[in-house]
Design a protein around this nucleic acid. Sequence first.
DNA 1: CTTTTTATTGTAAAATCTTATCAATATATT
DNA 2: AATATATTGATAAGATTTTACAATAAAAAG
Lengths: 150, 150
Amino acid sequence: MNETLEDVTTIFTDFLAKKNLRMTNQRNLILKMFLSTEKHVSSDDLYSLIRKQDNTIGQATVYRTLKLLAEAEIATIVEFGDGVARYEHIYLHQHHDHLICEGCNIHIEVVDDDIERLQVRLAKKYGFTLTSHKMYLYGKCEKCQNISSL
Amino acid sequence: MNETLEDVTTIFTDFLAKKNLRMTNQRNLILKMFLSTEKHVSSDDLYSLIRKQDNTIGQATVYRTLKLLAEAEIATIVEFGDGVARYEHIYLHQHHDHLICEGCNIHIEVVDDDIERLQVRLAKKYGFTLTSHKMYLYGKCEKCQNISSL
DNA sequence: CTTTTTATTGTAAAATCTTATCAATATATT
DNA sequence: AATATATTGATAAGATTTTACAATAAAAAG
Ligand SMILES: [Zn+2]
Ligand SMILES: [Zn+2]
Ligand SMILES: [Zn+2]
Ligand SMILES: [Zn+2]
């Protein structure tokens, strides 16, 4: 996907309008900051980032806006199992899954077209139409394999 | 996998011994109740179940024991995104992934051997050895597809 | 069998993350 | 302008999980 910030802002504004909600300065700033980050930010991460530009913004507003962004399908939730909801953007960033090293904790974004195809097939086998999926692969990276074999 | 309750209890006891921990009545009961449940129980679910048999047990003990069971690889965490950690047993239950209907919320356990194979291949491509994975497929079941098209 | 050491438990407090409440403010509609 | 509606920030409340700690139980040592 190659949307610009303006495109995504329009998408969000339209989404809001459809629900009788308004595009505000706060929502605008939050969206802008969110899109400018790479990968997995928690609401709190984003709140800290935004405070640097505008320290009047409220924590709850960030929570609320991220929920809206997820509803608008501009953001998706990623859960790494520590009880914190993290978000990443879909627009400006295409779908991917996560490969995670249990040793050093690095996260690599991956996609395998064959798997993506088979997921649709698998869902269809049960009469489902697939709208999305999440896949997390856990293992050890090259470096950590060597360390643990010492 | 076809382990019996006794087998799994032994596995857990051994795991504990290796860490200088002890098999206690509480841990034994929690394990037994956990294995007797089907699928996704939260710590609180399990706590309620156990209280019926022994109302002296503490909530924290259930949390602690489930953590240990996960560490011992007898249980795995399943996260459905509502902020609650749920557990399911690996022993007595083989690996599977989850197909979830966004309409009626039913959960179907699925496995696709081709996908499982490709996951290993994908990880290898990045120099990773794979130890586990989680895959959640979200969509609409047959019934819910029809409902939403009315 | 004691005594001593170590681990475990239950209770309750604390920590974390998220949501709800509400009066004040900003935005849209009339 | 006046009115209605939505939004905000602060704060309280909720929910889930972890931690602290004294009392208890289990294991090890004597
Ligand atoms: Zn994918
Ligand atoms: Zn690594
Ligand atoms: Zn699988
Ligand atoms: Zn359904």
